[in-house]
């Protein structure tokens, strides 16, 4: 019984991010010139066009920027998950990434709610960064 849902398809730009996820790290490119953390990955910084880049690890803390509640399964493999929440989380360091909220009921999700990363090790190759409400808030 393998994992049946779609998996990421890393390309030359996104591979370092997914390799980071496998190590349970949220890695982003940081511009060495202006300090901007960018997403999605790219060869230059969209703010200052510098190509000097380092990969840094984000804290995994953030807030729900917005979310959508799937009431219908667009793929059969998600039928068991409906209703589920897809979310854009704005990380404390700036980048906004698409993810899911877990660890609370869909009706409890709110914009600007504080969340933290939790790793879903779906296969040996892939860990998906998901987010849960920050404990104690």
């Amino acid at each position: 019984m393998g994992y049946k849902k779609p998996l990421p398809k890393p390309n030359a730009d996104t591979r370092p991010f997914w390799e980071g996820c496998k190590a349970h790290q949220l890695r982003f490119q940081k511009c060495s010139q202006c300090g901007h953390l960018r997403w999605p990955p790219s060869v230059i910084c969209p703010i200052c066009h510098s190509s000097q880049t380092q990969w840094v690890v984000a804290s995994g803390k953030g807030r729900v920027y917005s979310f959508a509640l799937y009431r219908v399964a667009f793929l059969r493999t998600f039928e068991g998950d409906v209703p589920y929440v897809t979310t854009v989380v704005e990380l404390a360091e700036g980048p906004r990434i698409l993810t899911n909220i877990v660890g609370c009921s869909p009706s409890e999700v709110r914009c600007d709610m504080p969340v933290e990363v939790v790793w879903d090790d779906v296969t040996d190759e892939f860990s998906l960064p998901k987010f849960r409400p920050t404990s104690g808030t």
Binding site: K5, P6, L7, P8, K9, N11, T14, P40, Y65, S66, F67, A68, L69, Y70, F74, L75, F78, D81, Y84, T86, V88, L98, T99, N100, R110, C111, D112, V122, F126, L128, K130
Partner: peptide, 30 residues
């Protein structure tokens, strides 16, 4: 999207309805 379609599908995100729904949700909030 800027992100590969398969990467979004891994989270059960399938395009246009949810994209606009997310925008509408932010507008509800703001």
């Amino acid at each position: 999207h800027g992100e590969p379609v398969a990467d979004n599908a891994a989270f059960g995100e399938f395009g246009l309805i949810a994209n606009y729904a997310m925008a509408a949700r932010r507008a509800m909030h703001l």
